[in-house]
Amino acid sequence: MAREKFDQIYARAAARKGGDAALESLLATPLTADEIKAIPDSRWLAAFSEKVFQSGMSWKVVRSKWPNFEEAFFGFDIEKMLLMPTEMWERKATDPAIIRHLGKVMTIPANAQMIHEAALKHGSFSAMVADWPGENITGLWRYLKKHGQRLGGNTGPYTLRVMGKDTFIVSQDVEAYLRHTGIIDGGKDTQRSQQAMQQAFHAWQQESGRPLCQISQVIAFSLGDNRV
């Protein structure tokens, strides 16, 4: 099947959502590169950690306890995270004020190390993310998976989206669309599939002038259980 033009996808999504204005009201707007560069690196560690804990758990429960995480982990200050000995991490993982899960707690120092190493090369982790080209956004996904802990799958991309970096998301609806149209036919996390997705999204971006996040939202709204 030939790749659909973006205006065809948009028209279908708008019809399902009650018109162009209603659809536009649902679309996210990414931050500018300068706005991303202004984000302290501690906020990236907090965001990655929150998404790791939300994986397989109630997002509502994690959000309700997150102030306790901020207190327990000193606002996710990178230097403080790197100085904490293993015994302290093990004690933190038994704190009833947070969600007690040693494996997920231990991603915090690992991802702090990833952020620290990127900051040494780029000035800050935020600068690296801000300058990462959108035409290779799946390369940033792979970077997070390779150098971080538990940041594969949609965890890394969802964190990027939450933090304002422009990225598409391979949600269930988006994956279903990509498979139905033959853009991907193997595992969605393989490099071959990610390259095919990247090419398709880049083409839609060239057609529409829209950010990647809006393109993936429009695709998701164009099918699945999301009628008005």
Rank of each mutant, 00 (worst) to 15 (best):
R3H: 04
E4G: 00
K5A: 11
F6Y: 09
Y10F: 14
A11W: 02
R12H: 09
R12S: 08
R12K: 15
A13C: 01
A13R: 03
A13S: 03
K17L: 15
G19N: 06
G19E: 05
A21L: 08
E24K: 14
S25K: 14
A28K: 15
P30I: 02
P30D: 04
L31E: 01
A33Q: 14
A33L: 02
I36L: 14
K37S: 12
K37N: 11
K37L: 03
K37H: 09
I39E: 04
P40M: 06
P40Y: 09
L45I: 13
S49E: 03
E50N: 12
V52I: 15
V52C: 09
G56K: 11
G56S: 07
G56F: 10
M57S: 12
W59K: 12
V61D: 11
V61P: 12
V61R: 15
V61F: 13
S64D: 08
K65D: 10
W66T: 11
W66I: 06
F69E: 02
E70K: 12
E70V: 15
E71S: 15
A72N: 05
F73C: 07
F74L: 15
G75K: 13
D77Y: 01
E79F: 02
K80M: 08
L82T: 04
L82P: 03
M84Y: 08
T86A: 15
E87P: 05
M88V: 15
E90Q: 15
K92I: 14
A93S: 14
T94N: 11
A97I: 01
A97W: 00
I98F: 11
I98K: 03
G103N: 13
K104Q: 06
A110F: 04
N111D: 13
N111L: 05
A112P: 11
A112S: 13
Q113N: 11
M114R: 06
I115P: 06
I115Y: 09
A119W: 09
A119R: 05
A119T: 09
K121P: 08
K121Y: 02
H122G: 02
S124N: 03
S124C: 06
S124G: 08
F125H: 07
A127V: 13
M128Y: 13
A130W: 01
G134W: 02
G134V: 07
G134I: 10
N136R: 10
T138R: 05
T138D: 00
G139K: 06
G139E: 00
G139T: 02
L140W: 05
L140F: 08
W141A: 08
Y143A: 00
L144P: 07
H147V: 07
Q149S: 15
Q149F: 11
L151Q: 06
G153P: 07
T155M: 09
G164Q: 09
T167R: 05
F168G: 08
F168K: 09
I169N: 02
I169G: 00
I169Y: 01
I169L: 14
S171F: 07
S171H: 04
S171I: 04
Q172W: 11
A176S: 12
Y177L: 07
L178A: 13
I184S: 10
G186L: 04
G187Q: 12
G187L: 12
D189N: 10
R192H: 10
S193P: 06
A196H: 05
A200L: 14
A203V: 04
A203M: 04
Q206G: 07
E207L: 06
G209D: 01
G209F: 07
R210A: 00
P211K: 01
P211L: 01
L212A: 01
A220F: 00
F221W: 08
S222K: 03
L223E: 13
L223F: 02
G224W: 03
G224Y: 03
